[in-house]
Amino acid sequence: MEERLKELRQVMKKKVFNQLEFTDQLKNSIHTEIRKQVESDEYVYLSVLQLLVQEKTGVVLITYLRSRGIKRFEDNEGLLYSLLHRLEVNGLLVSKWEENEAKLYSLTDKGQKILRKAEKKYAVKQSYLKEILEV
């Protein structure tokens, strides 16, 4: 048995995986899906930064994000708090505890600066997309 199994690698390549290729088509299709995700991620980050120009609690922030059509945090508040945490660690946000025990988040100066740059970048991209679509 052991002897035959030693040949399993060659055997499976020949008999099982012979029709199986990780094609460029599959690669491109994964790439396209991830691109969509990246673009929507960028929109989410930008929105979070824009909305936190004025300080807000996480709960309030989710309501505002919903009104912008961002629903990914609806049943997953943890996802939002881990994002807020990452932004805070990177120095874009500060948080402070309110008297009623909710945490308030707002942009730091660094956050403001990055927001302005990101808005410019995003605007360029949007107008570029618009051009393509209108032709």
């Binding site: 991620d41 960028e42 660094k110 740059k117």
Partner: peptide, 9 residues
């Protein structure tokens, strides 16, 4: 600053 934004973006 840009690097930071790119990292999270």
């Amino acid at each position: 600053d840009e690097i930071t934004f790119d990292q999270i973006s």
